[in-house]
């Protein structure tokens, strides 16, 4: 059964869609959630909720890339859970770090013309990322979509932590210039 057929099960309101999703993507969901929520119990709870969210979202959604859709739903749910729990560790964790790192990508938007719709921003980021090497692209997405820590990125890529940080810093600076050149006005 491919993903299109799996989606058809959702449309048919066949519960087998859920067990099939859990079988195919359960571990994947856990992996995405575990990188955002360090406590396993929280990640498990979120993954359970993801299945229900998928059930409710499809239909009317018919995602072309089901795995990416699952990743987005899981990420969103994990971030919501994290916010709900209001964990306040010293240092804040990956999410506040990522927010702070990305702060400079968009200059301060006091000019109404500078306000980019999120979809437009997403498209620009996608275009920018497609112009990068695979290694750099993966680093950026693993940091800011999958929210991996610097340590995990280093282990994942084989680069040193310093190299990871410097590469990400440069990419953020490049992205900022890219957005400005694409007409994002300061």
């Amino acid at each position: 059964m491919d993903d299109m057929q799996l989606i058809d099960l959702y449309f048919a309101r066949n519960e087998a869609a859920l067990s099939e999703t859990e079988s195919r993507y359960g571990s994947y969901c856990m992996s995405v959630a575990s990188r955002i929520l360090p406590l396993r119990q929280d990640a498990e709870e979120v993954v359970n909720d993801v299945y229900l969210s998928l059930w409710k979202a499809i239909p009317p959604e018919r995602p072309d890339n089901f795995k990416a859709f699952v990743a987005r739903v899981t990420r969103n749910a994990a971030l919501t859970k994290l916010q709900h729990e209001k964990r306040q560790k010293r240092g804040g964790g990956v999410i506040p770090e990522a927010i702070d790192e990305l702060a400079e990508v968009l200059p301060s938007g006091t000019d109404p013309q500078a306000v980019l719709e999120e979809k437009e921003l997403s498209d620009l980021i996608s275009r920018y990322l497609r112009e990068q090497t695979v290694t750099k692209r993966k680093l950026f997405i693993q940091r800011y979509f999958y929210l991996l820590s610097i340590e995990d990125l280093s282990a994942e890529s084989g680069l040193t932590k310093s190299n990871v940080k410097v590469t990400l810093m440069r990419m953020r600076n490049d992205l900022q210039e890219y957005l400005e050149k694409e007409g994002y006005k300061i």
């Binding site: 994947y28 969103n76 990305l102 999120e118 921003l121 997403s122 692209r137 800011y144």
Partner: peptide, 23 residues
């Protein structure tokens, strides 16, 4: 605000890029 905006925008990037970068 800017950081959250970009982080949120990452959710809607090209799905192929998301699966390509699967850790």
């Amino acid at each position: 605000l800017n950081g959250k905006k970009v982080l949120s925008a990452m959710e809607h990037i090209d799905p192929d890029l998301i699966t390509e970068a699967e850790p």
